[in-house]
Nucleic acid binder design. Structure first.
Length: 536
DNA sequence: CTAGGGTTAG
């Protein structure tokens, strides 16, 4: 009773008054501790139970409590230790115990996916084991492994059927990989099984379509969810937001409030991000103020980040800087990065230097901001300063994380790094790109060599730009798809200025529509224009 | 007495 009332100390007092507690009461005590986040006491109780276990009374329930507690401890190796104790009392063959252990190995401080997989391969597997392992891969960004295991479950899983948990997990893997074709196939499966109404599966489908560039499909799936929760609504708002559809995002937000659900911390991140992507300054200001006053939610670093983006975009650079100075949370690198980016767009060198210096203090190894600052100098004609920063990058030995872009073709994902020659079609791709570049230059495209961070002459700089991953991916997709189909490219970093300009021109020249998902948002290129309005 | 897998931001 005390535990359920979140009063662990009273529970402990009552427990201590029992002269000879039996294993049932001891397990109840441990479970109560775990429920109230007292994971170490919970584990201690289990350890002493095993130590004094002469008659084999430590049962499945006690093991489950201990294992689920071990998944919440920040130290490494705790699950392994409990595993040994569980084995000592002969409970490691128990199906529930093994499944709980599987999850615990990959969570908490252990984070050992390899150990989880090893256990998975050895144990007797049921539907829960398969979905647990698939979910673990998906949550840790190992999309290919998650998809592979999902297929394996259906083919050689010993008659294990598809279930809601495995489906939402594998949809998450499609989302990360941007694998729309596979995602659609899974969605068909969802429809066949009548699981569209399931809030977990439905929300996963919504998020998958949004993040794979099909926000209209996301909306359709959204309407099919029977009992939408705060996550479903937030996903839909975020979906519209990342595509630059700010009004639609706000309409969904209104609908949500109309339905009686209270927005939470994350909902407001989605709302403010949507305002920021669409440049809705007044709406953004309104909801930023309302979240505190009407909903009692204190803005966190993410909300400030959205506001700095939004104000910066609207040329209110001083207000953005003022907001950073007055916020109660310590500004992080992303915050100064947002201001720095706004300075790039509005060519404010003075404030850019302030932002960059604060950024360097926080993260001196972040090569992206050196590039940004150097570009700002270069665009302002301050070549010496631009050069100084470039030298700094070299002497400090900072490497940009490798940029890559990917395109899905007939269900297979093709990955391109800068200057990649690993693709079997690479010769044709480069030849195609050269021809295209000629036509682009005739149409007025001039390579923006200011954004190349190398000590090279102009010609060499142009060839550096030519081989950018997004250009390779676009060229490959153009070569291999039919006129009229929309090309979808996914990039792991922000799309570069030159590629952004280039793709706009490509859509004009070819009459094709190109959608690029970068690390921040979607860019819908059509007829020579981009949905971001050149702000990103 | 107890317990195992899933979805939202960036």
């Amino acid at each position: 009773m005390y535990h359920h009332c979140a009063r662990p100390l009273d529970a402990r007092r009552a427990f201590d008054e029992i002269p000879a507690p039996n294993p049932i009461i001891v397990t109840a005590m441990a479970s109560g501790c775990a429920r109230n986040n007292l994971v170490y006491p919970a584990l201690a109780i289990f350890r002493s139970m095993v130590a004094s276990d002469s008659a084999g009374v430590v049962d499945e329930a006690a093991a489950l409590v201990a294992l689920s507690a071990s998944a919440r401890v920040p130290d490494r190796g705790v699950t392994g230790g409990i595993h040994a104790l569980v084995a000592k009392v002969g409970l490691d063959g128990n199906a529930s115990v093994a499944n709980t252990m599987l999850d615990a190995y990959a969570k908490g401080g252990s984070r050992d996916l390899g150990a989880a997989r090893k256990l998975f391969d050895m144990m007797e597997r049921d539907a829960v084991s398969w979905s647990t392992m698939i979910a673990l891969y998906a949550q840790n960004g190992l999309s290919a492994e998650a998809l592979g295991l999902y297929n394996k479950m259906l083919n050689v899983g010993g008659g294990i059927r598809c279930n809601a948990v495995a489906l939402s997990a594998v949809l998450l893997a499609c989302t990360h990989a941007g694998a729309i074709q596979t995602g659609k196939r899974i969605h068909n499966q969802v429809v066949r099984l009548g699981l569209e109404e399931n809030v977990y599966v439905g929300t996963s489908v919504v998020d998958m379509y949004s993040k794979c560039g099909r926000v209209e499909m996301a909306r359709k799936a959204f309407h099919r969810i029977k009992e939408k929760n705060i996550l479903s609504w937030s996903a839909m708002i975020a979906g519209y937001g990342m595509h630059g559809h700010g009004q639609e995002a706000l309409e969904v937000f209104n609908e949500m409030r109309g339905s009686g659900l209270k927005p939470n911390y994350i909902t407001f991140i989605s709302v403010l991000a949507a305002c920021s992507h669409a440049g809705l300054l007044n709406e953004g200001r309104h909801w930023y103020n309302a979240m505190r006053k009407e909903f009692g939610i204190e803005p966190g670093i993410e909300h400030y980040g959205c506001m700095v983006d939004l104000l910066g975009r609207a040329r209110c650079l001083d207000e953005a800087y003022g907001l950073i100075k007055e916020m109660k949370v310590k500004p992080d690198a992303a915050m100064w990065g947002a201001l720095l980016n706004a300075c790039r767009i509005h060519k404010n060198v003075e404030l850019a230097e302030i932002a960059a210096n604060r950024l360097f203090e926080l993260d001196a190894t972040h090569s992206g901001c050196y590039v940004l600052l150097s570009n700002i100098y270069a665009e302002a004609g301050m070549w010496k300063d631009a050069e100084r920063i470039r030298v700094l990058v070299k002497t400090r030995g900072l490497e940009k994380p490798p940029a890559y872009s990917s395109v899905e073709l007939k269900g297979k994902t093709h990955l391109f790094y800068v200057g990649d020659k690993r693709h079997p079609q690479h010769k044709e791709i480069y030849a195609y790109l050269d021809k295209l570049l000629e036509r682009m230059q005739e149409a007025g495209y001039a390579p923006n060599t200011g954004s190349v961070l190398h000590d090279l002459d102009e010609e060499e700089k142009e060839s550096m730009l030519r081989i950018h991953s997004e250009k390779l991916a676009v060229a490959f997709a153009l070569m291999n798809s039919v006129q009229g189909s929309v090309i979808h490219v996914i990039k792991n970093l922000r799309v570069c200025t030159d590629c952004h300009t280039a793709i706009k021109i490509i859509t004009k020249l070819t009459g094709r529509e190109i959608v690029v998902r970068d690390i921040k948002r979607f860019h819908h290129f059509k007829d020579g224009l981009c949905s971001c309005g050149d702000y990103w």
